[in-house]
Write a protein that binds this DNA or RNA. Structure first.
Lengths: 254, 254
DNA sequence: CCAAAAGTGTTTCAGATACACCCATGG
DNA sequence: CCATGGGTGTATCTGAAACACTTTTGG
């Protein structure tokens, strides 16, 4: 449980160096084991989870702040980030209940932290490269399957929903495959990824045909061995052609 | 030119009732005479133009604030608004030059107004319904053709660019026709609108065929008379089917 | 040898594109 | 009567969807 001392130090620090009333929250998305995952933090001494987020330094751009926050949480240093929405409902921080769930105590003057507007980012990361680490206010940082995410603090459940919706509708213009898959991947990997995001099955032959026709991937001699059953070929993206397909919005697939 | 008194009153007012460091700017888009137009304000006693914008009351959601700001500028009271991006570069308000262009004088302590983060909205409105009116700090409020928009204050030129790009890439999911055209319109009106946004000519027969196939419009008995040449039929949108086509993203048209 | 995933081509259909002429209207 | 934009149908092509069997591998 957070002590009053810890909480006060945290907010004093933020008030001094950061923009007032503005924060950011990141929906970090990874893909593993045919599932989309999202990175969540658990608040000290509680069972309450929230998105990784933070404040913006007075001399820092919001994009840079998001990078900084995520570098600390994931150990990665050049993360694909996309700002997707601002959450500015007057009520989003109004409820005392949320602060109590976090294990925060009231400020000495009997009030709770004031209304904050939050800028939402989604990050697309290679699951395998991330080393999740909690911060001073949280006990744990780990991946959750999208389908099993618990009820989050504040409006974070809503923020996750909006992020996923945005990802779906912008599938054609976002580097989903490029950023979520490792350097080398198999055609079934890529297909599972699209199926998961779109929420429906795709035809194997048509999928392979379309991806090949776009020329965004190159097949390697290598195969992935060690799994059960027939060993699939490995592929990697052709950086140039992938970028071009994104510009033209031809990676929507349906 | 704005006096120090006026400026001070304005910022004192804002500081007292509004969220600090946060503003919003609106790219109000209309369509007239085969051209997209944007609504701009001219600052008192200067030739400098900017987007209509404002601050967010402490108890108000950002969306509500945008509605409020635009109601005052356009005379409309239920405007289609879409939040599309947050502009949070640390440098966007840094340059004294911008404040000087606006005709603002330095604050008494020798500083300029501090960094502000701005939430960008685009509004789609029926050109004919708008009654542009300036506010206390501006002399004039009027439509500009997109192609002839002058160099705007701060990063507003950039904001307009981002708004138009967003409009183009989200064409399939935004109620562009429904909101930009009047109640009754002709097929050529609708086609010109799409051509303008997409930046290319479309085939008349194919366009009419596709729109009809989607069933989003209904042809009226009435024709538009008074123009030169053959009188075109009038149409109106089928509200239900239009909404459905938007949900399915089938109004992209190529 | 069996179970399960990987890999591969052809046919069919729908939607997109290309294309040209007559009509109505105001000046 | 003429200049200009409005209105309409068909043939063709391209890309999407439907569809099944053989191969490989570990257990």
């Amino acid at each position: 449980m957070l002590t009053r001392i810890e909480m006060e130090a945290y907010f004093r620090e933020a008030a001094e160096h950061c923009l007032p009333g503005l924060s950011l929250d990141c929906v970090v998305i990874g893909f593993h084991d045919t599932q989309l995952k999202v990175l969540l933090l658990r608040w000290k001494g509680t069972d309450e989870w929230s998105l990784p987020g933070g404040f913006i330094l007075k001399t820092e751009s919001i994009d840079a702040a998001a990078q900084r926050v995520l570098t600390e949480r994931t150990g990665l240093d050049s993360i694909f980030l996309h700002q997707f929405h601002v959450f500015g409902e007057a009520s989003r921080y109004d409820e005392e209940q949320n602060w109590q769930r976090m294990g925060l105590v009231m400020k000495p003057d009997g009030t709770w932290p004031a209304r904050t507007v939050s800028v939402g980012y989604f990050a697309l990361v290679d699951f395998a490269q991330v080393k999740p680490s909690p911060d001073a206010l949280t006990d744990e940082c780990r991946w959750w399957e999208i389908a099993t995410v618990p009820d989050l603090l504040f409006d974070h459940t809503h923020i996750v929903e909006v992020a996923l919706n945005t990802l779906r509708t912008q599938l054609a213009w976002q580097p989903v495959g490029y950023k979520l898959l490792p350097e080398k991947f198999t055609m079934p990997d890529l297909q599972r990824l699209y199926e998961t995001i779109l929420g429906r099955k795709l035809d194997t032959r048509n999928f392979a045909k379309k991806i090949s026709a776009l020329g965004v991937v190159e097949r390697l001699e290598e195969r992935r061995t060690g799994g059960a059953f027939k060993s699939p070929y490995l592929y990697h993206f052709d950086r140039e052609r992938y970028a071009q397909a994104l510009r033209e919005g031809s990676l929507g697939l349906g």
